[in-house]
Amino acid sequence: MCDSKELLVGFLYDEIDPVSKRTFERHLATCSDCRFELAELGATREQIALWTPPDGDLGFRIVRGAEPAPTPPRFRFFSFSPAWGLAAAAVLMLAIGAAVANLDVRYGTEGLVVRTGWNHATDAQAAVTQVDWKAQAEQLDRRLRDLERSAPQRSAVQPVSASSAMSDAELLQRVRDLVSQSETRQQRAVAARLSELMREYDAQRRLDLATINQGMTRLQNTSGSTRDAVRQLIVRTALDTK
C-alpha cells in the first residue's frame, strides 16, 4: 500500500473510486508515514496555490476587416520623430547658420554692403556692386547735363557755372537718396528674412519638442502601449482566406 503513490495522489486530489478510498482510509489509520506524506503534500498544495500570475492587461478580440494595429517595438526611442522632420530641421538650422553666421554689414562711402554666410562675396563681387552705383550716378549725371544743354534758355537768369554747381549738388543729393532708399530696402529685406527664419525655427522647435515629449511619454508607457496593441487580434488574413 505504501508503495502505491498513485493511490496516495488519487486520495490527495479526491479522484479515487469509493472502494479504493475506503481501503486507503483504513490504511492511513495504521500508517504514520503515509499520513505524514499526505499532510506534507497537502501543505505543499496550499503553498503553490499562492503563486499567481501578474495581472496581464488582456482584452483580446477578433476584429473583422480591420487594419492590423501597429505593434510598437519595446524600445523605439528614436522613432518618435519622422526622418523628414529631422531632415527639415537640419536644413532649416543650416540655412539659419549660413544666414546668420559671419553676417557682415558695412556702410561707407561706397554704400551699403551686406554679406552673409560662410562663403563671403569676394571683393570683386563687392566691386561690381559699387560699379553699378557709379554707373548709375554717371548715367544720371549725363541725363541731367543733356537736359540742361537742351534747354539753356530756361536757366538764363543763372550763371552757367552756378547752374552746373547746383546740378552736381542735386546729383549728389539724388545719389545719396538712392543709396539711402537702397539701404532701407535691404535692411528691411534682411530683417524680414531673419524674422521669417526665426519664426520657422521657433515653430519647428516647438513641434520637435512636442514630438519629443510625446515620444518620451510613449516610451514611459511602453508596457501600456504594448498592452493596447495586444488587445486586438487582427485576423484579416484568416478572414481573407475564407
Partner: peptide, 15 residues
C-alpha cells in the same frame, strides 16, 4: 499521477 507525485515531492523539498 506519477508526474504529480514526483513534482509535488520536489516542490516540497525545494520550498
Amino acid at each position: 499521477k506519477t508526474r504529480l507525485y514526483q513534482g509535488l515531492s520536489v516542490l516540497r523539498k525545494q520550498l
